[in-house]
Design a protein around this nucleic acid. Structure first.
Length: 421
RNA sequence: GUGGCUGUAGCUCAAUUGGUCAGAGCGCUGGACUGUGGCUCCAGAGGUUGGGGGUUCAAUUCCCCUCAGCCACCCCA
């Protein structure tokens, strides 16, 4: 029995790789448009890097082992701690705001499902050193422009945008929640959609005074009607972020939705996720502001905002729209021969064309001309160049356009120099 | 990690109450067509029915275990 790939890991065939390359190209192209520089870090990190900040959940899902030097190490499950360390090293010399992006392969040991594997590539885009709401708008706009670059519009993809500071204000000042309970309350709101029982259980577990319970119910009700929460003073940064997105012409993608909290504990302000409009898949992208993390991990006090966008859900979305992926044709010209004695001329022509930068293939064994043309078509070649005894005698070749079947004789010198296929 | 559903050629799927039911289409290889592809026709390769065990005269079909995939929860990097 053949040894198959580990669960949650992918054998990437050329057709699937073509799709991945398309995603990567959109990532890099938009990042470049936004003035972001690419960085990278080690795929293996000391476990300590994650225990410092990420908490038990992430540490429990690490690919973790001891190396031959007796070090406790893990395959990286996320990029942010590495980014924090790198920025901290050069924080003094880097001009702020820092705009950096990376496309790491990340690993997590957990049960796989559609859109969630044990390995994926994730674009990370972060702005470091700018606390203002326009930085938030900037990274959200970049995320939106990536899905736009892939051909999706507001009817396909939605941004759900929230701000933890607003929820926190309502929970503490209206409901009277002790700030120690804040994280639990946010987590309960986060679960409201997926698992309402867990949220009500959280409320039931604590004895909440009557007045607070009413305020809490009012808050939960207003989650569906963001206008009231948006009117608060603490909502000013979110309002400015929205205004920025509106001025960029991207407001049609954005829904303010206070049910978005995001799981990670380190977010401190604006949080957002991108979803397919039908909500059939997992989040395409998630991010937000994490102003305290760099101080905790790297000892440098710099505000940050950023997001991660994985290749898996994005690939599913492209698949739903475009059908199965197809590999990009790499062969433009197929050089075919009539007989064995034409071989040398064909090899010479093929290599001359390759020197011109044209993708060229030819049959590696003696084959009937029909078979060679069949292969040329299967490869997606635009043209076949046929060389036979007659052509060689005339210093020419037959150029057959495979789309139309039209043929013309062309001088070999012209093919080698400047003929456009 | 918890619970549920599913598992037949590379792909999409067939196979009456367990009884020639291991097949079709597409794809792949070759041929008709040794100087011209797409169409058509013919032939071939490819399966220990995910794996293991059990019940039975007989298992793709029933039972158990296991592995894998999918869905929900967990979590969402």
């Amino acid at each position: 029995m053949p040894v198959s790939a580990l669960p949650g890991f992918r054998d990437v065939f050329p057709d699937a790789l073509a799709r991945r390359r398309r995603i990567f190209a959109a990532w890099r192209e938009v990042a470049s448009r936004y003035g972001f520089e690419e960085y990278d870090g080690p795929p293996l990190e000391p476990v300590e890097l994650y225990t410092k900040k990420s908490g038990d959940e992430i540490v429990a899902q690490l690919y973790r082992f001891t190396d031959k030097g007796d070090r406790d190490i893990a395959l990286r499950p996320e990029m942010t701690p590495t980014l924090a360390r790198m920025v901290a090293q050069r924080a003094a010399q880097l001009k702020k705001p820092i705009r950096w992006f990376s496309i790491p392969q990340l690993f997590r040991y957990e049960r796989q499902q559609r859109g969630r594997l044990r390995e994926h590539f994730q674009l990370n885009m972060d702005i470091i050193g700018e606390p203002g709401p326009l930085a938030d708008a900037e990274v959200i706009a970049a995320a939106v422009d990536i899905v736009r670059a892939l051909g999706f519009g507001p009817q396909d993809v939605r941004v759900r945008l929230s701000d933890r500071r607003i929820l926190a204000d309502a929970l503490v000042n209206d409901v009277g929640l002790p700030s120690a309970e804040l994280a639990g309350a946010l987590s309960a709101i986060d679960k409201l959609e997926r698992n309402p029982e867990a949220a009500t259980a959280w409320v039931a577990e604590r004895s909440i005074p009557r007045a607070s319970a009413d305020a809490l119910a009012a808050l939960v009700a207003s989650l569906d009607d963001p206008a009231r929460l948006l009117a608060r003073d603490v909502a000013r940064p979110l309002q400015e972020c929205l205004q920025g997105l509106d001025a960029m012409g991207l407001a049609s993608f954005v829904d303010v939705d206070f049910r978005i909290v995001r799981g990670l504990a380190y977010y401190t302000g604006v949080v957002f996720e991108l979803f397919d409009a039908k909500r059939a898949l997992r989040a395409i992208c998630g991010g937000g502001r994490y102003d305290d993390l760099l101080k905790q991990v790297g000892g440098v006090d710099l505000p940050c905002v950023g997001f991660g966008m994985g290749d898996v859900v994005l690939g599913e979305l492209l698949g739903e729209r475009d059908g199965p992926p197809r590999s990009d044709p790499s062969v433009t010209v197929f050089v075919a021969t009539v007989g064995e004695e034409d071989r040398a001329a064909a090899l010479g022509l093929a290599h001359a064309l390759r020197d011109r930068g044209i993708g060229v293939e030819f049959a590696l064994k003696r084959q009937a001309l029909g078979k060679q043309l069949e292969l040329a078509v299967a490869r997606g070649a635009r043209a076949a160049v046929v060389i036979g005894p007659d052509e060689r005698a005339a210093g020419e070749a037959v150029v057959r356009l495979l789309g139309t079947g039209t043929e013309q004789r062309v001088k070999l010198t012209q093919l080698v120099n400047d003929y456009v296929f």
